[in-house]
Every structure is written in C-alpha cells, then in structure tokens.
Design a protein around this nucleic acid. Structure first.
Length: 313
DNA sequence: AGCATTTGACCTCT
DNA sequence: AGAGGTCAAATGCT
C-alpha cells in the first residue's frame, strides 16, 4: 500500500472514530437511552482505533505496556553518541547545565495513569523503555516524593530521555509521568526488550506515517519527523487549538485508557498540527479529540492536554 | 562483580 | 534564598 493510500485509510479510521465518539457523547447525554447502544458505540470506536493502530503495526494495549506519549516535532540537535558516560554533559556547557536551562528547550509532556489500588509504582513504569532511577525529591506542597528516571542506555548511547513519576495528591491511585526528551536508543531497546514491543518502523515508511506513529504509538517515538510535515499531515480528530484540553483514548481492549498531557516548549509544531487540523476538522472547539470513559472498566485513563506557551503570554 | 537504587550534596534557575 | 533537578558515593540486590 502506498504512503498516501495508507494515510487516507488512517485518516478515515480516525475520522470514523471521532464520529462514533460524537455519537456516543450525544448518546450519553440522553439518560433514557439503553446502555446497549452505548456499548455498541464503544465497541465500534475501539475497533476503529484498533484498525488504525494495526495499520501502524502498533500494538498499543496488546502488551503490558502503558500507552506513552508522543514527542512530535522534536527539533533538538542529536545527543552525543560517544561512549563516555559523562562526556555528553561535562564537555558541553548546555549539558553541563543539567538544570532548567537545558530543559527549557526540551520537549516535555506528561501523562496521568490511574493504577489499580494495590498496584505499586512499578507496574506503570513498564512502558516499554528501560529506565534507571537517579534521584528522588520531596516536592513542596506535594504529599508524595517525585522520582527521577533516565534512560538506562544514556551512558552508552547518549539517550537523553528522562521521566519523572509522581503520585497525585488528590488521588493516590493516579501516577503522573513527565517525559522529557526522546529516546535515541529505541531501536536497540526494542530488539532487546523482554516484553514484545511493536516492531520498529520500516525504513521506507513515509515521514507522515512516522509523525502519526509518534503520535499514536508514543512510547515508540519513531523519529525523526520534520516540522513541515505537521502542516501536511495531522490526525483528523484534533481540533484547532492554540491552548486547550482534550481527551483521547486508545483502548483496544476496553480495559485501559490513559490520560496524557503534552507541554512542549517548542509547541510550534503542535500549533501547526492543530491549525492545519482546523481546516480538515471544521470545528472551532478548543477541545481536542475525544474522551472515552468506560466507568469501572477503566484501569488507566489517558488525558491529553496541549498547551501552547506562546498563547499564554 | 556488576548493576540498580538510595540519599545527601551540589548546581541552576527564579 | 528556596525549589527543582542532577550527581555520585554508599548501599543493596542478584
């Protein structure tokens, strides 16, 4: 199948999912409606996203991994790939500044994952990547400490991906993950991983596909993508927003969804996506996408929030 | 022995 | 000065 053909199919599937979600939404607004119809719609929505994801060779929800987040339009210079564990920091003033200065230019996104009451922090950490904890800190005003993780392969492959994990104050069953940077080690990680992650992208995949794969299969972070591709291709369920909150779930088996929150300091790519999506979606709602709630069936909820810093100033 | 985690110290930013 | 983030030595685990 050609790139364009596949792209069209994906867009169709996702658009159908959006329509079904709208139907479900209106359905839910009618308290007298029988539950069966809602369940049918949910099943259809799930099937739609399963098809879209299967087109991407993406097995979100079919493994034990928690759906991650996408880093779209990453524009940082490639990380050091030399072997010295500290050389990528000490020799580079930017890296030497391991604090906010560097992070300012790094893409950041968060996701909130609801875990089972008895489930420890270990479960959700199984997101397909290998992380090594390097610190823990009590945060002012937070009941629970924040744990800091970096990619295990950082010393060898210079992978600068990091993540923070913090338990929610309001609801201890919710863990908030904050990801920074992208994995540059993923290819090898996939091959060596023990929990059957999705296959790596084919070499001849179009960059549009990579963009969507980055978006829908975030934990895989298939890179690179070019900024201008965002303008050419955007998930059709995204409505235009320079700032706003919305919901999107990938729930192949209906048992888990999750909530993600994107915050990109280089959010131009996002705004390009959303503004271009405006032309196709024809909606002016500041809300992005879909929100599926499956009640007790939920184990994880994914909540996407897209912020556009430029619009906040 | 090698690797991961813990934890106090240190650094950077606001 | 205080807070968030990282470093690195000490410690634990396999």
């Amino acid at each position: 199948m050609g790139d364009w053909e596949q792209k069209k199919h994906l867009i169709n599937e996702l658009a159908e999912g959006r329509e079904l979600a709208k139907q479900l939404q209106s359905h839910l607004n009618l308290p007298s409606s029988p539950n069966e119809n809602g369940e049918v719609l949910v099943q259809k929505i799930i099937a739609t996203y399963e098809k879209a994801l299967s087109m991407l060779n993406c097995s979100v929800g079919t493994s034990s991994t928690v759906p991650g987040a996408a880093a779209i339009g990453f524009s940082e210079s490639p990380p050091s790939l030399n072997g010295s564990p500290r050389s990528d920091q000490d020799s580079d003033p930017e890296h030497r500044n391991a604090g906010l200065g560097k992070r300012k230019s790094m893409q950041k996104w968060t996701k909130q994952v609801r875990v089972s009451p008895g489930m420890g922090i270990e479960g959700p950490l199984e997101d397909g990547f290998s992380w090594r904890k390097y610190g823990q800190k009590d945060i002012l005003g937070a009941k629970h400490p924040r744990a800091y993780y970096r990619c295990t392969h950082r010393p060898v492959r210079g992978c600068l991906a990091t993540k923070q994990v913090q338990r929610s104050d309001e609801d201890p069953t919710i863990l908030e993950f904050t990801y920074r940077g992208r994995h540059t080690c993923k290819q090898s990680t996939i091959n060596s991983s023990t929990h059957s992650p999705p296959p790596p992208p084919q070499q001849n995949q179009s960059e549009e596909q990579l963009l969507l794969m980055n978006y829908l299969c975030p934990e895989n972070q298939f890179f690179p993508v070019q900024n201008n591709l965002a303008e050419d291709f955007a998930p059709s369920f995204l409505s235009p927003a320079t700032s706003g909150t919305g919901y999107f779930s990938v729930s192949p088996n209906g048992l888990n969804t999750s909530h993600q929150n994107f915050q990109s300091n280089e959010a131009d790519q996002f705004s390009e996506i959303f503004s271009s999506s405006a032309a196709t979606s024809g909606t002016n709602s500041p809300t992005i996408g879909l929100d599926f709630q499956f009640g007790n069936a939920n184990q994880f909820d994914t909540h996407f929030t897209f912020d556009h810093p430029g619009s906040l100033s």
